[in-house]
């Protein structure tokens, strides 16, 4: 089955894509939404433009759709992007990185249903700690590019998700009740290397900015 991956360049969509490939599916194209709204309910924004380089290194075609990121309106832009993928690449299903968010997953389910596509959520309900451990075990090199939940602060930006980070996060999540996988927007990530990539990215430039109270993001440039 030909699949289109809703791809943000972060760990959830990249790991979901890898799982789909491991289960024998064809990763036909990536679909990325560039949102102008950093507070988007649906789409990841830090370092989103770097997905072009990730797509190149995976040798998978990429469809980009821009959106203003207005609530619900952004879904129409997502639908447009999926329609392009159907027309150009004849995809038969969509893969998402949804873990717990019913808000995101039910909206994507409705779009897939409307467009007569299968909808796959391979990380759905996955235990967060088990998930982070699997990322390391399967050689995903992932760093934090956005934080927006106390006590996470700008010092976490650029940290790699490794055993040390998982232990630190475990302590923080027990005390402050944040989602250890960061799916509630607590943190955003960027994948520098994984089994889908032909080689690892190097960071050649980074710019950190505050995006509100207890909220920072890091725009990367990689090569």
């Amino acid at each position: 089955m030909k699949l289109g991956i809703l791809f943000s360049g972060g760990k959830d969509s990249t790991y979901s894509a890898w799982l789909a490939k491991e289960f024998g599916y064809e990763l036909t194209c990536l679909i990325s939404i560039f949102s102008k709204n950093p507070e988007s309910y649906m789409f990841h924004t830090p370092s989103i433009k770097q997905v072009k380089k990730q797509a190149q290194i995976m040798e998978i075609p990429l469809i980009i759709q821009k959106t203003k990121g207005e609530k619900e309106e952004e879904l129409k832009d997502l639908e447009k992007a999926i329609q392009k993928a159907i027309k150009k690449y004849k995809i038969e299903g969509i893969v998402t990185g949804a873990i717990q968010s019913i808000y995101q997953s039910s909206r994507i389910q409705k779009i897939c249903d409307k467009l007569n596509l299968e909808c796959f959520n391979p990380l759905w309900q996955k235990n967060e700690e088990e998930y982070l451990a699997e990322l390391i075990q399967n050689k995903f090199k992932t760093i934090l590019t956005g934080v927006s939940a106390y006590p996470l602060d700008e010092s976490f930006l650029g940290k790699e998700i490794n055993s040390e980070f998982i232990n630190e996060l475990k302590k923080i999540s027990q005390k402050y009740k944040i989602n250890p996988a960061g799916e509630g927007g607590e943190f955003e990530t960027f994948v520098l290397n994984c089994p889908l990539f032909k080689k690892e990215f190097n960071i050649i430039n980074k710019r950190i900015s505050s995006t509100g109270e207890n909220s920072w993001k890091m725009e990367l440039e990689v090569e």
Partner: peptide
């Protein structure tokens, strides 16, 4: 019918039992 759906509809139940 689709193998990949095991992760979405079956594994979460296995995880509950395993826990």
């Amino acid at each position: 019918e689709e193998r990949l759906h095991y992760l979405e509809f079956v594994k979460p139940i296995e995880d509950i039992l395993r826990k």
